[in-house]
Design a protein around this nucleic acid. Structure first.
Length: 255
DNA sequence: ATGGTGGCGCGGCCA
């Protein structure tokens, strides 16, 4: 199984990139974040025409997640039990026997802000849900835009980003508690180039200067870690005209 | 410290 995550920052704008990427890379599963589309405007026909199924949970203007797959997705979940959240940020599916949780984690804006407190609460609630799901599903993947760089190795300039949003200790600790449930960051199962990132700010020519962060992650349960054969970042879509500020992260499992 | 860019949608908000 080849599975990927990509924050597209508007699926309306990025649909051509997504269709091209599906055609060239042929993933079994592609999880999107920041579709920024209400469900009635979702381009389901175009994705079907590409030979894929798709489920989605969207809203106008902000947020929105979608899971594209070659096989049929079942047991769709769009909300965390006990978390009343109008923002469409989570999509659970089961595909080819794998439970797939597609996340668009709250950004948090600034350390210490109300949005930051909301981010930590949201992560705590999602982590609780993952704990129960892990007990039910041996083959479990949590992937998406985590809006957290796990360690300084995932930051182009750790000093400049020290205790800033996306890199702060409370955020990293929250991710740590999720991992402690029995998940691993598949990217770090393999040797990787130094300064490997998945997001670069649109401003200040950040991509050209490789001033990025690795905030898009694919976490896998132990049974899947044992079957994980690769995890890599595909920078090609970030080089296209009018790109997303994120680029796809891909993991492969022998299943 | 600010601003730099992009998407949405038409003034700001969000990232």
């Amino acid at each position: 199984m080849k599975i990927a995550t990509w924050n597209v920052n508007s699926l309306k704008v990025r649909l051509p990139h997504v269709l091209d990427w599906l055609a060239s890379e042929q993933p079994d599963v592609l999880c999107l974040q920041e579709t920024k589309l209400s469900d009635e405007n979702f381009p389901a026909d175009e994705i079907s025409a590409a030979g894929y199924e798709v489920v989605f949970s969207g809203q106008k203007t902000y947020n929105g997640v979608a899971t594209i797959s070659k096989s049929h997705a079942t047991d769709i979940v769009t909300d965390v039990p006990g978390l009343d959240d109008p923002q469409r940020r989570i999509l659970g599916t089961t595909i080819d026997g794998v439970r797939v949780l597609n996340l668009y984690v709250v950004n948090g804006q600034e350390v210490g802000s109300d949005k930051f407190a909301h981010k930590l609460h949201w992560l705590e609630m999602v982590t609780g849900y993952i704990g129960t799901q892990l007990k039910e599903h041996e083959h479990f993947i949590v992937l998406g835009d985590f809006n957290i760089a796990p360690a300084d190795a995932d930051v182009h300039d750790p000093e400049a980003w020290h205790e800033r949003i996306l890199c702060s200790t409370p955020e990293r600790d929250a991710l740590g508690r999720m991992l402690e449930l029995g998940l691993q960051d598949t990217f770090r199962l393999f040797p990787q180039e130094e300064k490997s990132f998945s997001w670069w700010d649109y401003r200040a020519a950040a991509f050209r200067r490789n001033m990025g962060l690795r905030i898009d992650l694919i976490l896998a349960s132990q049974a899947l870690v044992a079957r994980c054969s690769a995890c890599y970042i595909d920078k090609a879509p970030r080089r296209l005209e009018r790109p997303s500020d994120h680029t796809p992260v891909v993991a492969e499992f022998s299943l």
